[in-house]
C-alpha cells in the first residue's frame, strides 16, 4: 500500500443490530484525490461514509486518518479533526439564516474566512439573510458544502450530492469538486455516473456490503463501465 494515504479503511465490518451491512470493506484515499463509491441503493455506501464519520460504530476493522485511529472517536471530534461528512438529505438548519448557518460552521472551527465559501458559491452572498428553510435544493447543497469547507478539512465525505438537483447545478458542483480537490480529498457516494466519470480518480464499486471492484486507472472510469455495478 502506498505511504501517502490520508484515510485508510481496513476490513471494516458494520451491523445494524443483528443485520450485517458491511463486510470486510477496505478502501484508501490519498490527499487531494477524488474517490467515488458507486452501487445500488442499499449497497452500504452511505453506511460506509457514516461509519468513517463516526456516526456508526463498526463491529470490527480499522479506520486510520492521518495515522490516527478514528474508531471510538465521537463524530463531532472527527469533524474537528478535519474529516467532514456532508449528508444526503440536504437538511440545513431551516430556522437559521444562511449567515447563521455559516457562523455555526465558523465558530466550531474558528475559521471566519467566508471568502473561500463565496468564491465557490457566489450566489450565497445574496442569500445571507434568508432563512435556510426557504432555499432551493441546489442552494441548500451549496450551503452545506460551503459550511463544511470552513476549517479547511482534509477530507470531505459527500453523500449523494447531486440527488434531485437541476443539471445546471450538477455542472456547477462538478466544477466546484474539481477545484476543491486541489486542497482537499473527496470521497463521494454518487449514482450520477456522468459526474463520477468526469471527476473521479478512482472508483470503488460496492455491492451488498462488499467492495467488489476498484477502478484505479482514470482512463477506465467511464459511465458504461460503472453502470454494471448499479
Amino acid at each position: 500500500m502506498p505511504t501517502d494515504e490520508l484515510l485508510v479503511v481496513d476490513d471494516l465490518n458494520v451491523a445494524y443490530g443483528e443485520s450485517k451491512v458491511l463486510f470486510d470493506v477496505s478502501i484508501h484515499i490519498r490527499a487531494n484525490e477524488i474517490v467515488s463509491c458507486v452501487g445500488r441503493n442499499g449497497a452500504g455506501k452511505s453506511t460506509l461514509l457514516k461509519t468513517i464519520g463516526g456516526f456508526i460504530k463498526p463491529t470490527t476493522g480499522s479506520i486510520m486518518f492521518a495515522n490516527t485511529s478514528l474508531v471510538g472517536i465521537k463524530s463531532y471530534n472527527i469533524a474537528k479533526m478535519g474529516l467532514k461528512y456532508i449528508p444526503q438529505d440536504k437538511k440545513v438548519f431551516s430556522d437559521l439564516t444562511v449567515r447563521e448557518n455559516l457562523e455555526l460552521g465558523s465558530y466550531a472551527t474558528q475559521d471566519y474566512n467566508w471568502d473561500k465559501v463565496t468564491e465557490y458559491f457566489p450566489k450565497l452572498k445574496s442569500l445571507m439573510e434568508r432563512k435556510a428553510g426557504y432555499l432551493s435544493g441546489g442552494e441548500r447543497q451549496m450551503l452545506m458544502i460551503g459550511r463544511a469547507l470552513l476549517g479547511d478539512p482534509q477530507v470531505l465525505l459527500v453523500d449523494e450530492p447531486t440527488e434531485g438537483l437541476a443539471p445546471s447545478i450538477v455542472t456547477q458542483l462538478q466544477n466546484v469538486f474539481l477545484e476543491l480537490s486541489k486542497k482537499t480529498a473527496l470521497v463521494i457516494v454518487e449514482q450520477n455516473l456522468s459526474l463520477v466519470s468526469a471527476i473521479s480518480e478512482r472508483v470503488y464499486a460496492v455491492k451488498e456490503g462488499r467492495v467488489v471492484h476498484e477502478i484505479s486507472d482514470e482512463s477506465d472510469i467511464k459511465s458504461n463501465v460503472c453502470e454494471q455495478f448499479l
Binding site: 464519520g53 456516526f55 465521537k74 463524530s75 463531532y76 471530534n77 469533524a79 474537528k80 467532514k84 461528512y85 456532508i86 449528508p87 437538511k91 440545513v92 438548519f93 431551516s94 430556522d95 437559521l96 447563521e100 457562523e103 455555526l104 460552521g105 466550531a108 472551527t109 459550511r147 463544511a148 476549517g151
Partner: peptide, 18 residues
C-alpha cells in the same frame, strides 16, 4: 443558534463538530 440547531437536527450539528 446552536440550541436552535440541536432542537431541529442534532445529527447535523455533529457534522460541524459540536
Amino acid at each position: 443558534a446552536c440550541c436552535l440547531a440541536t432542537k431541529t437536527n442534532e445529527d447535523k450539528l455533529k457534522f460541524l463538530g459540536y
